[in-house]
């Protein structure tokens, strides 16, 4: 399945169904990651029930140091 993640085209297994599974696949599941799917911001407790599909545009962001 082809996804656009953070502006880059990425191939991921078709078996991935949710944001949570995508984060596990990317090995980012041990961090606080905030997701946006096709411009819908997903609250973190809904990541496991938010489905992903071919050509979705996904933004994955996090908190970094800042003033």
């Amino acid at each position: 399945m082809k996804l656009m993640i953070n502006g880059e085209e990425v191939q991921v297994p078709d078996s991935l169904r949710s944001i949570t599974e995508l984060l596990e696949h990317l090995k980012l599941d041990d961090q606080i990651v905030i997701a946006e799917v096709n411009q819908d911001i997903i609250s973190n407790e809904k990541q496991s029930v938010t489905q992903i599909k071919e050509n979705d545009r996904i933004e994955l962001v996090r908190f970094v140091g800042g003033g």
């Binding site: 980012l28 962001v61 140091g65 800042g66 003033g67």
Partner: peptide, 20 residues
Amino acid sequence: LTFAVRRMNIFEASQPNFLE
């Protein structure tokens, strides 16, 4: 404490982060 919000590097699994 203030923080900024930025894109993750999705190709780098280990990204030490102060928040954690």
